[in-house]
């Protein structure tokens, strides 16, 4: 019996290490070549760490190519998407979870339909709406659809959270004569802070990495977000692998840092969907 345990233990360990290597090495390889020149990448040292650190790859990527602009665009879009999504979803789920009115169930189910609609399917009408509203190449043209798409999911998370709170919370405030708005802002919001934190991370990651909607709606070079802007390296600069690697590393840095600092929070945020949908 003892032996059986250790055998499965060894197998597990071998698997863990080999998959870990498989998962991590491509990223490390990218980090390595972002510091190399072409000679090292292609001929003398394709696998190992760089022998000479070519920091100029990063300088080039930052100054010659449009990377700071993409970075700024991504930041604006992601931050405003987070703010919009959290505030709109929070008040909506407060009205459906706590307040008493006839169609609250219908409204909640209506918005939750959003979880079953693939974003890709409505790219065409979305592009037409944005065109008709003259919002092409405006930050709003990404922020609004991102918010609309994240609503279903974040409302569900907030709904679950708000339902679990005791009614006494509002009762006390009501007796003290506080209005519903005051109660919402000074009592409810502080209570749901953990859920808000989780949803901030989730929404930020979604918005920062979103590709298809941005591809269709952001056509002007100066308005492109990072995932989109990085594409131009593929065609024109394929020979400059170092600068390309440097750009990719810089584009990944915010989310990787966010993840390594808040790894538990991020995993909770990403897996919360399992708990809600399943």
């Amino acid at each position: 019996m003892k032996k059986k345990y250790s055998l499965s233990n060894i197998l597990y360990k071998v698997f863990l290490w080999s998959y870990g290597l498989f998962s991590l090495y491509p990223l490390i390889w990218m980090l390595f070549y972002s510091f190399k020149n072409n000679d090292e990448i292609f001929i003398s040292n394709p696998f190992g760490p760089p022998l000479i650190f070519h920091i100029e790859n990063y300088v080039n990527a930052w100054t010659v190519y449009n990377v700071p602009r993409y970075f700024f665009n991504s930041l604006v879009v992601s931050v405003f998407t987070v703010i919009m999504t959290i505030s709109v979803a929070l008040i909506f789920s407060y009205a459906t979870a706590r307040m008493r009115w006839k169609f609250s169930g219908v409204a909640r189910i209506y918005v939750s339909i959003g979880m079953f609609i693939p974003v890709q399917a409505i790219l065409i009408p979305l592009a037409i709406i944005v065109r008709d509203l003259n919002l092409n190449n405006e930050y709003l043209s990404l922020i609004l659809p991102y918010t609309a798409f994240n609503l279903a999911f974040s409302s569900m998370v907030f709904y679950g959270f708000l339902r679990s709170l005791p009614v006494e919370l509002e009762e006390a405030a009501c007796i003290d004569g506080a209005s519903i708005y005051r109660t919402f802002f000074s009592i409810i919001i502080p209570t749901v802070k953990p859920a808000i934190a989780t949803m901030i991370i989730f929404t930020f990651l979604q918005a920062w990495n979103e590709f298809p909607i941005a591809l269709v709606l952001m056509t002007k070079e100066n308005m492109k977000t990072l995932p989109l802007g990085l594409l131009f390296f593929q065609g024109r600069f394929t020979t400059d692998w170092g600068a390309m690697g440097a750009t990719m590393v810089m584009a990944s840095l915010p989310t990787v840092l966010l993840y390594t600092i808040f790894s538990n929070q991020v995993e909770k945020a990403m897996t919360i969907s399992g708990a809600v949908k399943g």
């Binding site: 209506y110 959003g114 609609i117 709406i129 279903a152 519903i180």
Partner: peptide, 21 residues
């Protein structure tokens, strides 16, 4: 308050997800 709270979500969702579908 109810109208105020649900309106933004309903409008956004209807205009940018439901109507496009």
């Amino acid at each position: 308050a109810i109208a105020l709270f649900i309106l933004p979500a309903m409008v956004l969702f209807t205009a940018l997800v439901f109507y496009p579908v």
